[in-house]
Design a protein around this nucleic acid. Structure first.
Length: 597
RNA sequence: GCCGGAGUAGCUCAGCUGGUAGAGCAACGCCCUUGUAAGGCGUGGGUCGUCGGUUCGAGUCCGACCUCCGGCUCCA
């Protein structure tokens, strides 16, 4: 058989030859330095056979910046970590240990919790392994053999059962030491020599398979490079980014600060307001150019409003509630309710359409403490939020307009946009034709604007697909910025019947949408509460409300407002933890930002 | 929320096994007048995150809480 080399020359090989065989055929030095073969564009273990006629590229230790070459180095590093931990902590159970963007991690289930100090010990053990050296041997096994091998490792067993294709294992050892075997798809290095720098960087809790209903594991992070100076440069880059952290610079420049008396809510200083007002000016100017009509609606609405809008069934725990003379109100976490009330305040003619309402209102969200992060994840956000009421025929143009607007903003701030297109979920309402049409409209808009996106199948809201826009920060963390959501089902939930016919609503948030949630758990059902809400159809909210009232008659005891003034600020209304227990949910699974109404 | 870390003067931090708080920078005062990464001398400044407990005595030990930092997506 033949394979094609990068210079387009052909290499003749015996049938079943592997990447390593190909390297050997070219030269001994190449074979020695090879770490990976890219076959047909895909990273492949050197030990695996090549296909006849496919183009290949041998990556070596000199391709030290190649993402695939780094990934194989780091994945092998993760296995060294696993070996060290297995030796140091008898009884530990192994979960998974992939390479990630800037390093690798391995998830463990420790019999006893470990602390940060333990990392030093583990690091020393890994350093010893590196000094001894390790070679990796790949073996293919049957599913039954794999189950036998990992019979005491529940996580590995689950992986065996859910794995696609053949099962492989890797054993790492050298001169009889090590001898650590792990279930692994590969690819791996030939041996540990290319790992010139390996550093454990952190410790964190992480749920098995990213699902909060699963046990929490202990994740150990690390990174590795083909050269010590690359590790040094990486650490220096992290340091530099830290020095430029807006959370330090902001207060230093007297722009804003945070106070523990209102966690997650910046206090803007005079200098900061100069920037704020400039952003406002840009927002007004650009909105005006695009035909948005500025409106202003209340911050606080009664519970009825939020049951109808669907916020309460889904997001009640993340909204600030206000008790007004015994009646429950809440602070809006999105502008939709006000805009719906405004649009529905009189009968509208389709000749008015499209109507684009924009509102720069402060929105309040009771984000969980562990998720707050400077100005990027806050409890109060003023975003350029808008709702567009239009006809089915106008959808495509309006969406394209929204995406183009988003692109304009990203370019204005010199940010690289990336997007996620979330499509129909299982509990969707509306017809397939409608969804086909709407998803296509979103996709077309993204393509027209050349914004790279990934598909998130099944992640759309039950009422329509959406586009979430992201930015990366200096440390490579992803933050959700804007969103564009299409709701073709609004009339179903509109109690006031302001619509004579079914009218789609487009909800979009652009500049200033800084409080967006991070891309959390992707898996549907990760949040039991949210998925339950998704199952509920529009209109069921009212029933749910009655149930809720019965379950919780009267709610919290009322208090005299005068008492409130007298009360010392630190005093709490209820036992600590009661509230936390009530909302035992996975914060990441919750995508608070802007589920439209 | 969960896991790990942290909370001592405006800032950066030290304070080991408990005995009533320190440094550098900043600020302020005086001196020097010195051409742009830190001239000299001196002074003031801390309920050691909050509440409670142990103790003759707690920044230091125990408990609860608050806030902040890293992480909880990258699928054997």
């Amino acid at each position: 058989m033949k394979v094609v080399l990068p210079d387009n020359s052909e290499l003749e090989l015996p049938a079943g030859a592997t990447g390593l065989d190909a390297a050997r055929a070219i030269g001994p030095k190449l074979a020695e330095q090879a770490v990976l073969v890219r076959a047909n564009g895909r990273a492949q273990d050197l030990r695996l056979p090549l296909q006849d006629g496919e183009p290949i590229q041998i990556l070596t230790i000199r391709d030290k910046d190649d993402p695939d070459a780094l990934a194989v180095l780091r994945h092998s590093s993760a296995h060294l970590l696993a070996e060290a931990v297995t030796r140091l902590y008898p009884g530990v159970r192994l979960a998974i240990g992939p390479a990630i963007e800037n390093g690798f991690y391995y998830d463990f289930d420790f019999p006893e919790p470990i602390r940060e100090e333990d990392l030093e010990k583990i690091q020393a053990e890994i350093d010893r392994e590196l000094a001894e050296g390790r070679e990796w041997v790949r073996q293919e096994v049957s599913r039954d053999e794999a189950r036998e091998l990992f019979s005491s490792d529940p996580y590995k067993l689950e992986l065996v059962d859910t794995a696609e294709g053949d099962i492989s294992i890797y054993t790492q050892s050298h001169d009889g030491v090590g001898n650590f075997t792990d279930l692994c798809r590969g690819p791996h290095l030939q041996d540990s020599k290319p790992i010139k720098a390996l550093k454990l960087t952190g410790l964190a809790g992480a749920y098995w398979r990213g699902d909060s209903s699963n046990p929490q594991l202990t994740r150990i992070y690390g990174t590795a490079f083909y050269a010590q100076k690359d590790l040094d440069a990486y650490l220096e880059r992290i340091e530099e980014a830290r020095r430029r952290d807006h959370r330090h610079i902001g207060p230093q420049l007297d722009l804003f600060h945070f106070d523990e008396h209102s966690p997650g809510s910046p206090l803007w200083h005079p200098h900061g307001m100069v920037i704020w007002n400039e952003l406002e000016r840009v927002r007004r100017r650009e909105n005006a150019k695009r035909g948005y009509l500025e409106v202003r609606t209340p911050i606080i609405y009664d519970a009825d409003t939020f049951w109808t809008s669907g916020h309460f069934p889904k997001y009640e725990d993340l909204m600030f509630k206000v008790d007004v003379r015994g009646q429950q109100f809440a602070m809006k976490s999105m502008n939709c309710p006000g805009h719906m009330l405004l649009f529905g305040s009189r009968l509208r003619s389709y000749k008015e359409l499209p109507v684009r309402f924009a509102e720069p209102a402060p929105l309040h969200r009771d984000e969980l403490p562990g998720t707050l992060h400077g100005l990027l994840r806050v409890r109060i956000v003023t975003q350029d939020d808008a709702h567009i009421f239009c006809t089915e025929e106008q959808i495509q143009d309006e969406i394209a307009g929204c995406v183009a607007y988003a692109r304009y903003l990203y370019e204005l701030f010199d940010m690289k946009a990336s997007a996620e297109l979330a499509t129909r979920p299982d509990n969707k309402i509306g017809t397939d034709e409608q969804w086909d049409h709407n998803e296509a409209a979103l996709e077309t808009a993204l393509a027209l604007n050349e914004i790279p996106y990934t598909l998130a199948p099944g992640e759309g809201a039950f009422y329509g697909p959406k586009i979430d826009l992201f930015m990366d920060d200096a440390l490579g963390r992803k933050w959700q910025m804007g969103t564009i959501q299409l709701d073709s089902q609004m009339p179903h939930r509109d109690p006031d019947r302001a619509f004579r016919r079914r009218l789609p609503v487009l909800a979009r948030a652009g500049a200033g949408a800084g409080a967006a949630g991070r891309g959390g758990a992707r898996r549907a059902g990760a949040d039991p509460r949210a998925s339950a809400a998704r199952r509920g159809l529009p209109g069921r909210g009212r029933g749910a409300k009655r149930d809720d009232r019965q379950a919780n008659p009267g709610g919290r005891a009322r208090e005299d407002p005068r008492d409130r003034r007298l009360r010392r600020p630190r005093e709490r209304r209820e036992p600590r933890g009661a509230r936390a227990r009530r909302r035992a949910i996975d914060p990441r699974a919750f995508r608070p930002p802007r589920q439209a109404c």
